[in-house]
Amino acid sequence: MVGRGLAVPAHVGDDLVEQRILEAYASAGPRAVVTGWAALRLHGGGFFDGLARDGRTRLPVPVAANGERLGSRDGRLAVRLTVPADEVVTIHGMRCAIPERALFDEMRRIGHVPEMAVAVGAACAAQLTSLRRMELYRSTRRWYRDVRVIARALEMSVEDCRSPQEDRFRMIWEYHAGWGRPLRNRSVLDLDGRLVAVPDLLDPARGVVGEYAGADHRDIDRHESDIAREAALRGVGLEYVEVVGRDLSHPDRVAQRMREAASRAGVLPRRWQLGPPTSPTLDEILDARAPSSDAQWLPPGPDPSHFTSLDGR
């Protein structure tokens, strides 16, 4: 039973995050609004998986009461917020905050500025919003609580990292090691214009690239490809720093590895050049999706066939 007069079939579990969101919303009332990470998930943000940083602890589904007499319960967090009508869209029958408002609420939930910036990057990686759109949203909601904290996080954010872990590596690179903002996912060419690689991070002045190796890199074919990629980058005069998930908890260790790579790179002849910047930009992609009017663009949510409605259909 998920609410008065509402139930799901006994065989339906809650392992699917969209099912958890649906059940949390079901008994919330007609004015309630799904927000935060849950709304971002429904908008198509795959990195918003409803789990805490440890990858195991489930986060409650944040639902803005919006005037309803709504209480928190197992799996649902009732948020005492009002989401205005112009910040609400409907996805698969659920009232959800638009991406900018959902991300704003998620950042407020997180509270830690660097991790707030990682959330911004995850939303941008999913092409839900952009830094320009978030800056505009923030500047036109100056009366909202925590606006100043959000501003600091946006200053730390980038929109072209491909995963939260890659973005956390970028934070160590930029802030802990003090190397400044690296180029992200920029193509490296040899002197004849042939593609060498597209590294996660690149400091062109120091001649160092950085790569985050996730779980998918453990596959033997992918590992062989990574070895060849590293050799190709060194062959044109770039030194290589690879980190895995455990390294991100030890920024001093990563920074020392970076310094060692920079010292090695200093004696290598440069046989590479930068490829052109990524095109189109994220804003150009989002602008192309937007209708000609000022109406809010609604990106596709998850396939509704993947979760079960409350009457079992």
Rank of each mutant, 00 (worst) to 15 (best):
A7N: 13
P9E: 08
A10C: 08
A10N: 09
A10H: 11
H11S: 14
R20K: 12
L22V: 05
L22Q: 10
G29K: 03
G29T: 01
G29S: 04
A32Q: 03
T35N: 06
T35M: 05
A38H: 05
R41C: 07
L42I: 05
G44V: 06
F47Q: 13
A52N: 03
R56K: 15
R58C: 02
L59G: 00
P60E: 03
V61N: 08
V61T: 03
A64P: 08
N66M: 10
E68D: 09
R73W: 11
R73K: 14
G75L: 09
L77K: 14
L81M: 07
V83C: 13
V83A: 12
T90C: 08
H92P: 01
M94E: 04
M94I: 14
A97F: 04
I98N: 08
E100A: 14
E100K: 09
L103W: 01
F104D: 08
F104M: 08
F104I: 01
E106F: 09
R108C: 13
R108L: 03
G111T: 02
A117E: 00
A117K: 06
G121Y: 01
G121V: 01
A122M: 07
A125E: 11
L131V: 14
R132N: 15
E135L: 13
E135G: 15
R142L: 15
Y144I: 02
D146Y: 13
V147D: 11
R148I: 08
R148P: 00
I150R: 00
I150M: 14
R152H: 11
R152A: 14
A153V: 00
A153R: 01
L154W: 01
E155V: 13
E155Q: 14
S157E: 06
S157R: 00
D160Q: 11
C161N: 11
S163K: 10
S163W: 04
Q165R: 15
R168D: 03
R168S: 09
M171D: 12
I172N: 03
E174D: 07
R184L: 15
N185C: 01
N185L: 00
V188A: 03
D192L: 00
L195F: 05
P199F: 05
P199W: 02
D200K: 03
L201A: 08
P204I: 06
P204Q: 02
A205M: 04
R206Q: 12
G207P: 07
V208E: 05
E211G: 06
H217K: 10
R222I: 00
E224P: 00
S225E: 09
S225T: 09
D226W: 06
R229P: 14
A232Q: 04
A232K: 10
R234W: 04
V243E: 02
D247W: 10
P251I: 12
R264E: 13
A265T: 02
L268R: 15
P269R: 14
Q273N: 10
G275M: 07
P277D: 13
P280I: 06
T281D: 08
L282K: 01
I285W: 11
I285V: 15
L286E: 08
L286M: 10
A288M: 03
R289C: 15
P291T: 07
P291S: 07
P291I: 05
S293R: 07
D303M: 08
S305V: 12
D311T: 10
R313E: 10
